[in-house]
Design a protein around this nucleic acid. Structure first.
Lengths: 191, 191
DNA sequence: CATAATCCATACTGTAGCGTATGGAAAGAG
DNA sequence: CTCTTTCCATACGCTACAGTATGGATTATG
């Protein structure tokens, strides 16, 4: 009749497997279309399994938000630890990471979570935490570059607003060399 | 025979009324939750009416996108027409418009359409048209400020990426005076 | 081996929403 | 007035999905 799941006998999904699958859907289709039956099918099981691991859909959503928050905070701390003298390079690196095509999925998740935060208070709280940490880290780097507190804050805000904003835009055939524009911009922000 | 809805008898919704209602839902709940039955209820009718004015849901979505595109292109041309010497002020004004709290709904629509464009090809096309027009208009202003083509393009891209990006962020209690940060940033972008 | 705990499938109820079919009321045309 | 067009209501079938109930199968444990 049908498959016996010959590939992997008795895998036993755990919570994290569900969360990672959920994040994949989040990146591809957004928070609104994160549905338990769809996710279950993606993982090759039925929702009978889901409701053993999670109380309900909300439970999964919160778990996804926590997971994302922890990952982002861990990442930003790693990316912004620079040896003395390398702070400017670390700033440019941060900009590059968010503009990079090789980080497509990460950017998609970022956008999905931020859109999610437009309607969900839990998502708002998580995004605020992540933003606060990122702004604080960037601010430290700018201050290490001898900028005063106000300018460091302003440049930090500009930095993240730019990287998030540019991922929403479709410059299309705007410029001949988009890459050189981005390089100019990165320099103008990090200077 | 224009806007003859005096008392209440036989109001007769037209296509534009549906589109405007749809945009309100778009701003409040996003494209994914733009549903015809919900919209009908909002307008005080049933979907029997909807399917007289529109072929299907997709027909409404396309109409919404066209309407939004036409409005944005009209707006940006209006905002960026400056008398000689007023180009820098026009640029600052553009930044201010998108950052302003009194434009909350416009910003919400903007964000919704851009998120929409992450999955819908029609929305992608419209966003590309609008972005192209905006970038071109901003570019003209920067060039009028005696900047070379490359820098004008770079600053234009930075300008719009920033204004869209900042609307996605939750600076929370990041800075003591967020307004002064924005003023600094606006100056740094517009030069 | 026997029993319990773990993990998942199946079946069911209930709601939301899309699209269609059809009838009915209001307004204009003759 | 009658007839037609316009605009909307009602009723229907269908799909997607949330959550619950229950049983079955696998694995761990005494």
């Amino acid at each position: 009749m049908e498959t016996k799941a010959a590939k992997t006998p008795r895998v036993a999904l755990d919570r994290e497997a569900w969360i990672k699958g959920a994040i994949a859907i989040l990146a591809e289709h957004g928070a609104e279309r994160l549905r338990v039956e769809v996710l279950a099918k993606r993982l090759g099981v039925t929702k009978g399994s889901f409701y053993w691991h999670f109380k309900d859909r909300r439970d999964l959503q919160n778990a996804v938000l926590q997971f994302w928050r922890d990952g982002r905070i861990h990442d930003i701390r790693k990316q912004t630890q620079a040896e003395p003298g390398g702070e400017a390079a670390a700033l440019l690196h941060t900009i590059e990471v968010y503009s990079s095509a090789r980080n497509r999925k990460g950017i998609a998740i970022e956008a999905a979570v931020r859109d999610w935060a437009r309607r969900d208070p839990q998502a708002v709280a998580v995004v605020e935490e992540v933003d606060a940490e990122r702004l604080a880290c960037a601010c430290r780097l700018f201050r290490a570059c001898k900028l005063d507190e106000h300018e460091a804050q302003a440049r930090s805000l500009l930095l993240y607003a730019y990287v998030f904003g540019v991922s929403l835009m479709r410059p299309g055939s705007f410029a001949g060399d988009l890459a050189s524009l981005r390089t100019w911009i990165a320099g103008h922000i990090a200077r």
